[in-house]
Design a protein around this nucleic acid. Structure first.
Lengths: 223, 223
DNA sequence: ACCTGAACACCGTTCAAGT
DNA sequence: ACCTGAACACCGTTCAAGT
């Protein structure tokens, strides 16, 4: 006891941009966007809030770096041997699942433009659009539409995920929304009421892919 | 001077939910989302911050009400005599333009699900999808895809609008981005570089409608 | 019923001081 | 070079006290 503990001594690894960003991702995943404060982050890293500023410029850079870490991992899939539509679906689902698991990423991407991780997604989409045989002049529009759709849905889905209390049963939640829809004014919300039933049997992920296919059909179906 | 001023006396209208929401929209439009504080809002209404809480539950409700006011106005267009695709394009552009003018609306819609203004947009889209002759089973997917696309692009566009300093020339900005893109790594960003030129001649609004048409083509082109 | 504004419990960020 | 943590200038929200 008088001697230094050896095996369990747990020497504090030095602070680094990498460790900070990792801890930020953890915090965002567990406590949500409002839980990421410099004080909480500093405590997790057993240091003071000021220390973080030596490695990062501020909260904006911290959030960008955390998002980048998640997106980079999500799109790091091989698509050898896949057809362009298959590769596009896989890529889209990769982003979708990442945002489903880390809802704060969706919120961030939806409000921050021209971020480097978005550019990487755009490049990946564009290559498949090209491989699809889309003529040069139409590629920009096609790739933009796909990316906007992907980020749009993923963002909405993230919002939904965050809206539901972590423990809630998914089927139960959809049921509640469906019931809410069928209580809407019959005249003003005729359509919404008519599709309320679909909500129950509805699979976000499948619906998402169906939308991708819709756009792909539009891209391919040139006169 | 000893008598009460008459014409110019400017009696303070009583505070009301309506006046508060109106002032909030003004503040959001002029100073941006970060400029909407209860202190600034109270000052504009020449009262104390606490007074606002008598009429609204808190900031969340304030933002929801402000968004609702804008969206309601944006989709209040008659579409008599228009074909379903025309009506859909007009509706989509209405939302697009509203968000372009009030970027904070895009940011809010992108992060808040199941909001009443979104439901109204959904209903409007759904009716046109139905009028388009889409079979019952496919309507939910089609309407969802359209709405997700619209909100997704509008959100991205809002983000872009906010990113650019209010005074900046649009052409100049696109030029700067295009230059940035052509400075990217030639191997890792081959596609992005190849379409950098398109950026300059690129019209957000037209691109947005092109995406709508892409989805409409996909919806209509059933085998 | 409605408004006032000080007070409370937080934020992100800075910075002199330490090692 | 890197870290510490008190201090600063803000927030949203509450609430006793006023009219």
């Amino acid at each position: 006891m008088g001697t230094k503990a050896r095996g369990t001594e747990r020497r504090q690894e030095p602070l680094s941009r990498e460790r900070i960003v990792g801890a930020a991702v953890d915090l965002l995943d567990t406590v949500g966007e409002s839980g990421l404060t410099f004080r909480a982050l500093a405590e997790r890293l057993s240091t003071g809030p000021g220390a973080i500023y030596w490695h990062l410029k501020g909260k904006a850079e911290l959030l960008a770096a955390a998002t980048d870490a998640v997106v980079t991992a999500a799109i790091a899939v091989e698509d050898s041997g896949a057809t362009p539509p298959e590769a596009l679906r896989a890529l889209a689902l990769g982003v979708f699942d990442a945002i489903d698991f880390h809802p704060w990423v969706g919120a961030y991407l939806a409000r921050t433009p021209g971020e480097s991780s978005m550019l990487r997604v755009f490049e990946r989409i564009g290559r498949q659009v090209q491989a699809l045989g889309v003529p040069e002049a139409a590629r920009f529009t096609a790739a933009s539409a796909l990316m906007n759709y992907i980020l749009g849905v993923a963002g909405q889905n993230a919002a939904n995920t965050r809206a539901v209390a972590p423990g809630t049963d998914r089927a139960e939640y959809l049921d509640a929304v469906a019931r809410e829809w069928s209580r809407l004014d019959p005249e003003a919300y005729a359509f919404t009421r008519s599709v309320a039933g679909r909500l129950r049997e509805h699979d976000d992920r499948a619906e998402f892919v169906a939308g991708i296919d819709l756009i792909l059909a539009g891209i391919t179906a040139r006169p």
